[in-house]
């Protein structure tokens, strides 16, 4: 096990985050604040509460999840795509590191950044709405697990992408719509029965539902199912990454 390599990649990626602090941290915080202004204050004033929770508070887990998914994916995808784009990937490929160690470094850094971001957004939320977290440890668990899972997903996209457009296309055209349709700003229970069934095919529903349960003990699906689905997606991403490094897909000709 080349632990020093993992630490080196991790530190390298975290240093990149610190260099781009405005883009990495400040910009998502401002976006989230705007969501609160628009959805919490403007629309929330007309919707009093959902399932016994004030609307402003209700959207907090969804908003954190929205940022967590997009930021984890984008961070990790950019982290591995950039060396491919510039050609510095040669150093990773020629170093005595395993695929697992490379993934640990990049995914660990991307997930760390996302968790920090999630916690900052949570703290920002407190400025707008009073919040009480029923299961803080579960909340943290879901936060970390989702950050890792979607950083793995982003890592895969970063290896798959053959240009900056492809790099952006999945977060923008797939993840964001899935998140918006995944119960970020509403409970899927308010949907007509048919669309409730359709929503169950959206993996984000499970993530948001489990996360929201840790805050308010209300959920669209059972928290156990949420946890199982998140872990299943994590395992799927791990298998894909293992296959990528085994075959050299998009990395080695």
């Amino acid at each position: 096990m080349n632990g020093r390599a993992i630490v080196s990649i991790y530190k390298f990626e975290m240093a990149r985050t610190l260099r781009t602090i405005w883009q990495s941290i400040v910009s998502p915080v401002i976006s989230t604040s705007l969501y609160f202004v628009v959805f919490g204050a403007a629309i929330g004033s007309r919707i009093t509460e959902i399932e016994g929770v004030a609307y402003g508070a209700f959207i907090v887990p969804g908003l954190i999840m929205l940022m967590l998914l997009t930021q984890s994916t984008m961070n990790a995808s950019f982290g591995i795509y950039f060396p491919r784009f510039t050609g510095t990937i040669y150093e990773l490929l020629s170093a005595p590191v395993s695929s697992f160690e490379i993934a640990c470094g990049y995914v660990g850094a991307a997930a760390t950044k996302s968790v920090i971001l999630g916690l900052i957004i949570l703290a920002t939320s407190w400025l707008f709405v009073p919040l009480h977290i029923e299961h803080p440890l579960w909340m943290l668990g879901f936060l970390v697990l989702t950050a890792i899972t979607f950083s793995l997903f982003g890592f895969i996209i970063g290896i798959w992408a053959d240009g900056f457009e492809q790099l952006q296309i999945i977060p923008l055209l797939i993840l964001t719509p899935l998140t918006f349709l995944g119960g970020t700003f509403y409970s899927t229970h308010v949907l007509p029965p048919f669309w409730q069934k359709v929503a169950l095919f959206n993996p984000v529903v499970y993530l948001v539902s489990g996360f929201r349960w840790s805050f308010f003990e209300i959920s669209d699906v059972s928290p156990a199912v949420s946890l199982a689905m998140t872990v299943a997606f994590l395992v799927l991403c791990l298998v894909v990454i293992w296959w990528i490094f085994r075959t050299g897909y998009r990395l080695k000709k």
């Binding site: 990649i9 240093a15 170093a95």
Partner: peptide, 15 residues
């Protein structure tokens, strides 16, 4: 990255 950082990174990468 700075010259020092990138060279140090390479050393770490090789364990």
């Amino acid at each position: 990255e700075s010259v020092w950082d990138t060279v140090s990174f390479s050393r770490g990468l090789f364990g």
